[in-house]
Design a protein around this nucleic acid. Structure first.
Lengths: 246, 246
DNA sequence: ACACGTTCTACCATTGAATGGAAGCTTGTG
DNA sequence: CACAAGCTTCCATTCAATGGTAGAACGTGT
């Protein structure tokens, strides 16, 4: 028993604490947190207290631990996607108003689309894309739009390692999807994510024509108005791109 | 020179690193970061590398440090205000559509309103409230709406320590504002935050009738339709409150 | 009212992870 | 090509971090 018997640094432990919260869960009992983070209770207790003193965590009555409001504030104030979101928001609002549909904005992280912003419409179709949620590239229109406009090497690397756990999709099918999306300038998936919905997404390119995000909508399957949707999305995407730097 | 010459823990240092980013700044040079965080360069370097290995920070070419996408994701997935924001979003969208104005949602943190969500309208009046931005209680309608519905003791404590750095407002004026807001059920400020805008906010109460948030709009000064705005906001606030637990 | 289980909090001797100065490296500039 | 500025690596020193243990604070069933 000494400075970290398990051989991990303080940083490792702090990360484990923050990562211990399952998706969508905002509060955890101390003992459960210790368990999930793989820390001795007394160590977890000390760490949580220290973090909460700085507002990175909040400890409620009875040892209920939440992420701190201050952490949320710091991260969102200086978020790496701040510029992108600020540039995109007005255009997303336009799309939402004009097309009257769910709109979302995603970036590529690893082999997944990470949704950084989303506007939903009351009463409109279900939209699986939660803010800060992820979807694999091959089953999301946003993911396909992003990947289809990445450099060849990255696409090759992606397809190389591709494996669908459910076994429904092969690398060749994905290759086909990507080729289509690249050629058409947009990606679409009907009834894949949700049987009754249809997703369309277009790439958002920065000044150097690097694809940095995907702008997409989710509409009811019945309402297939590609002719109206795609140009609107592409126009918005160009508008966003124009506001982006590097 | 040993384990922390300056007598601060690793946790302290990590917090200082994250806090080192000034509001709205998304990237910092390593040396500048070390400087702002008050750390020796080599220590900052080690810490940044460790954090970036876990994705809490991203280090770009040439030592450019940003907050990590993974950190943003974790914090937003498990944000303490997740439930509030989810409950509020549809109502905020309704307000935005029907009233055609900027809408925002704030919580009380310390003696400030912390804005947790915001929908802006293209071309509509300037809205100072940034997401994750703060405004002092006494110069924001959201702040007044929040504070005016807090328990007596908290209000007393607030007024006790109140001091306006600009010296324009006295504690008595604020007391008056709070009393009005409490009595009317909404707070309003015309031309205070911005000379041409007008802010109105109402409290959002949870099931136990504790005020947990403020729902507000920012409209052009000219467009003073209190009769239309307040009932709409109050209706929405009740709708949000009904969806909230504790 | 009492005993038991569960969960949080506090203590403190031990020790290896964290520290930071110095030296090396890389990049940009006149 | 020399110089500056900033990033990266190294490593002996040492105290901050560790976690088993004990105890306090609840909650619950008998």
């Amino acid at each position: 028993m000494a400075n970290s018997a398990s051989g991990d640094s303080v940083v490792d432990r702090i990360v484990r604490v923050i990562e211990a919260f399952p998706e969508g869960v905002t509060s955890l009992q101390l003992s459960e947190l210790a368990d999930r983070a793989g820390l001795p209770l007394s160590s977890a207790h000390r760490l949580v207290r220290q973090l909460s003193e700085h507002g990175l965590l909040d400890v409620g009555a009875g040892g209920t631990v939440r992420l701190g409001l201050r952490l949320w504030e710091l991260v969102n104030r200086n978020s790496p996607t701040l510029a992108l979101r600020q540039a995109a928001m007005p255009f997303m609002e336009d799309i939402q108003q004009v097309l009257n549909q769910n709109v979302n904005l995603a970036v590529l992280d690893g082999w997944e689309a990470l949704f950084v912003e989303r506007l939903s419409r009351r009463g409109s179709v279900a939209n699986r894309a939660r803010i800060a949620g992820r979807m694999p590239v091959h089953i999301s229109s946003a993911g396909l739009a992003l990947m289809s406009h990445q450099p060849r090497e990255l696409q090759a690397e992606y397809l190389e390692q591709f494996a669908d756990p459910s076994g429904k999709v092969t690398a060749d099918v994905v290759r086909q999807f990507l080729a289509e999306a690249a050629q058409q300038g947009y990606a679409q998936l009907a009834g894949v994510v949700d049987p009754d919905t249809w997703g369309i997404a277009v790439p958002v390119m920065n000044a150097k024509r690097r694809t940095v995000a995907a702008l997409g909508v989710v509409v009811p399957l019945a309402e297939m108005r590609l002719q109206a949707l795609v140009p609107a999305l592409q126009t918005a995407a160009r508008g966003i791109g124009r506001q982006l730097g590097d």
